[in-house]
């Protein structure tokens, strides 16, 4: 039996991947934060999934989950793959985010991901009958192209880019490979989650620009995005491939969301983005005058 651990399987890419790996004959350990999600997964996906109840920021709970997984493995079996998928996105203009926002964003996406990898490395080591396991980190194209209002999220993915390099080089000792996959826009409900946040910045200069960015995402980026199943397939293929690339990007609208931003001179790209996202000095000035005129109308 081949075992795999996927973090954050209650929804999204994690959930779809768990399903996909089960179809391919794997047994999946899937981390969830809530007991209710654990029960739901059991009913929906059956015996091929063993939900592990932990939050990636909770080290003692991770340690307990390691014991649960260990008990489930037959002698000579290991965990063939760890898919570090769990992540959060705290959006907003950096001027208006707090140090606690920074801490939370990094604790889940970086320190938490690392804790899980550290804890499960011993179960991924080579056994008499099985090859050493592989770590696959689900990253984002924003690690290469950091966009406004996703600054902290992009920074965590960049930090993980570096950590994946370090892990790959150091875990070479155990022949545990580490692969970092930049996933482009995905068709999912992430947007409905983030659109609520725009209202929080109603009183800041960035409000119009944030709205523009969201509208652009809803209209152009998300509809052209990958499906979760396409991502799941790539994760599976990467695990099974004899010689996977250490890092690669998957993208639907490859030319516009990957090739172009990576090839343009940075200062030029800045200008393009500023225009598109209404982030130019003249945009802010125009918003100011607009607001002034509406407020004076209100007063009269």
């Amino acid at each position: 039996m081949k075992h795999i651990l996927i973090t954050g399987v209650s929804s999204g890419i994690g959930y779809t991947s768990a399903k996909y790996f089960i179809e391919k004959g794997f047994h999946v350990f899937g981390s969830v934060r809530k007991e209710a999600d654990a029960q739901r997964l059991k009913t929906e996906l059956g015996d091929s999934i063993t939900p592990l109840l932990f939050d990636v920021v909770d080290e003692p709970a991770i340690a307990k989950a390691v014991e649960v997984a260990k008990a489930k493995l037959e002698p000579g079996e290991n965990i063939a793959g760890l898919i570090a998928n769990a992540g959060i996105h705290i959006p907003g203009p950096i001027l208006h985010l707090s140090r606690d926002d920074m801490r939370n964003q990094f604790e889940v996406n970086v320190f938490g991901a690392l804790s899980v990898i550290q804890a499960f490395v011993p179960l991924m080591r080579q056994t008499d009958s099985q090859k050493p396991g592989r770590v696959i980190h689900v990253s984002s194209t924003s690690a290469a192209i950091p966009l406004p209002y996703s600054s902290l999220y992009a920074a965590t993915k960049s930090a993980m880019h570096s950590l994946c390099d370090t892990l790959r080089r150091e875990l070479m000792l155990y022949e545990i490979d580490v692969i970092d996959i930049y996933v482009g826009p995905v068709k999912n409900d992430m947007v409905s989650k983030v659109s609520i946040y725009a209202e929080r910045y109603k009183d800041t200069d960035y409000y119009h620009s944030i709205t523009a960015r969201l509208e652009n995402a809803l209209k152009n980026t998300i509809p052209k995005g990958l499906t979760e199943r396409e991502v799941a397939k790539v994760l599976h293929d990467t695990l099974e491939k004899a010689k996977p690339k250490h890092r690669f990007a998957i993208n639907k609208d490859w030319f516009n969301t990957w090739f172009l931003p990576n090839i343009l001179p940075i200062r030029f790209l800045d200008k393009v983005l500023a225009k598109k996202l209404q982030l130019r000095p003249e945009d802010f000035a125009a918003n100011k005058t607009k607001e002034k005129s509406t407020s004076s109308v209100g007063q009269s």
Binding site: P93, I94, L95, F106, V110, A143, P146, L147, P148, Y149, S150, S151, A154, A155, T156, K157, S158, A159, M160, H161, S162, L163, D165, T166, L167, E170, D205, Y206, S209, I266, D270, L273, A274, L279, R280, P281, D283, F284
Partner: peptide, 23 residues
């Protein structure tokens, strides 16, 4: 590892800071 990752994160932030402070 920790040092490199913290600097890489700051590199990323450099882009977003520059883009958000541009106006």
């Amino acid at each position: 590892g920790p040092y490199s990752a913290s600097k890489r994160a700051l590199m990323s932030m450099n882009h977003t800071l520059r883009r958000e402070f541009y106006p």
